[in-house]
C-alpha cells in the first residue's frame, strides 16, 4: 500500500513538473517569440511602413529589456497561484472575464467526455463481438465517415437537422455567460452530441483494437472453455485490459476534446471559453491567453492523473509492479 502512495506521490510531482514546463512553453510562445519574431512576422512589402525607431519601440513594448528568467518566474507564479492579472486594455481582472466561460466549457467538455466514453464502450464492445462481421463493419465505417467530416460541418449539420428541421433544440444558444448552470447544461446537449460524433472515432478504434486483441488472448480462451457467456467474458475479462491503451491516451483525448469544443462552441454560439480565447488572440490579450492555456493544460494533466489511477485499478500487472517495486 505504501508503495502505491509512493507511486502516486511521484506522479503528482511529475504532473507539477509537466505543468511548470507547460507554463514555460506558454510563456515562450506568448511573450518571447513575438519580440524576437517582430521582423520575421512582417512580410517584406510591409517593412516599408516601419521606421527603425518603430521597430525598436515594438521590441521595447514587449519588454525584451528585462532578463527572461525573471519574466518567466513572474508568469509562473501568477499562473500557479491562479492570479491571472488584468487585461491589457481596460485593466479588468482576467479571472472575471474567463471564470464563467471556463465553467461553461468545463460543463460542455465534461459531459462530452462522459457521453463519449459511454458511446465508445458500447460501440467498441458491439464491434468486437464479431470482428469483421456486418455490425463491426457498419460501426467502423460510420465512425470513420463522421471523423472525416470537419467538426464545424458536423455541428452545423446537426443544427440544420435537429434545430431547424425537427425543432427539437434551439439553433442558437441565447443563455448569457453567467446563466444558471442547469440552463447551460441543457443548452450543451446538442453541442455535446456534435462533439462526440466527430470525436468518438479515434477512441473507438483504440478500444476495438484492444478488445480484439484481448478476446484472442489465452485467458479469455480459458474463460470461454469454462463455459462463461460471451457478454460476460467481454465485460468482465476483456474490457478492463482493452481499456488500458485507451486510458493511456487520456491526455490526448482530453486535449482533443478541448480543441474540438472551441470549434463547436463557435458553431452553436455556446457561452464558453472558446470565443473568449479567439477574442483574446485577436487583441493580443496575452494575460488572458496565458490563463486559458494554463487552465486547459491543468485540466489535461488532472485527467491524465485520474486515468493513471484507473489504470492502476484495472491492470493487475501494474498493481503488482507497484507493490513489488
Amino acid at each position: 500500500m505504501g508503495s502505491i502512495m509512493n507511486m502516486l506521490g511521484r506522479r503528482l510531482i511529475l504532473s507539477f513538473a509537466i505543468l511548470s514546463l507547460t507554463s514555460l512553453i506558454v510563456f515562450l510562445g506568448t511573450e518571447v517569440l513575438p519580440g524576437d519574431a517582430i521582423t520575421a512576422t512582417i512580410p517584406a512589402e510591409e517593412l516599408a511602413f516601419y521606421t527603425p525607431e518603430q521597430l525598436a519601440d515594438l521590441r521595447k513594448e514587449y519588454g525584451l529589456d528585462r532578463p527572461l528568467p525573471v519574466r518567466f518566474l513572474e508568469v509562473w507564479e501568477r499562473l500557479f497561484t491562479f492570479d491571472f492579472g488584468t487585461t491589457l486594455i481596460k485593466k479588468e481582472p482576467v479571472l472575471d472575464h474567463i471564470a464563467h466561460p471556463m465553467i461553461n466549457s468545463g460543463i460542455l467538455a465534461g459531459l462530452a467526455m462522459l457521453v463519449m466514453l459511454g458511446l465508445v464502450l458500447v460501440l467498441g464492445i458491439l464491434a468486437s463481438l464479431k470482428p469483421g462481421g456486418r455490425l463491426d463493419t457498419a460501426i467502423s465505417a460510420t465512425t470513420l465517415f463522421t471523423y472525416s467530416m470537419p467538426d464545424f460541418v458536423v455541428g452545423n449539420v446537426f443544427v440544420v437537422i435537429f434545430a431547424v428541421w425537427l425543432g427539437l433544440t434551439p439553433a442558437v444558444i441565447f443563455a448569457p455567460t453567467n446563466a444558471p448552470k442547469l440552463t447551460i447544461l441543457l443548452a450543451s446537449l446538442l453541442p455535446v452530441a456534435a462533439l462526440c460524433i466527430h470525436g468518438a472515432a479515434y477512441q473507438f478504434r483504440l478500444l476495438r483494437a484492444g478488445m480484439v486483441e484481448a478476446l484472442n488472448s489465452d485467458y479469455v480462451e480459458r474463460a470461454r472453455l469454462a463455459g462463461l457467456p460471451t457478454w460476460y467474458i467481454c465485460i468482465r475479462h476483456a474490457l478492463p485490459v482493452a481499456m488500458i491503451p485507451m486510458l493511456n491516451g487520456t491526455a490526448q483525448f482530453v486535449a482533443g476534446l478541448l480543441s474540438g469544443s472551441v470549434v463547436v462552441e463557435t458553431v452553436f454560439k455556446y457561452p464558453g471559453v472558446g470565443s473568449e480565447l479567439l477574442r483574446a488572440l485577436a487583441q493580443r490579450e496575452i494575460p488572458t491567453i496565458q490563463a486559458i492555456a494554463f487552465l486547459a493544460a491543468l485540466a489535461v494533466v488532472t485527467a491524465n492523473f485520474i486515468a493513471d489511477l484507473a489504470i492502476l485499478g484495472l491492470d493487475p500487472r501494474v498493481r503488482a509492479s507497484a507493490q513489488h517495486g
Binding site: 509537466i18 507547460t22 512553453i25 506558454v26 506568448t30 491526455a251 472551441v262 491567453i289 486547459a296 489535461v300
Partner: peptide, 14 residues
C-alpha cells in the same frame, strides 16, 4: 508530455 497537455488548438493559437 508538457507539449501534449496543451490542447492542439490553443497551441496553434499561441
Amino acid at each position: 508530455d508538457a507539449m501534449m497537455s496543451i490542447p492542439e488548438l490553443i497551441l496553434i493559437a499561441i
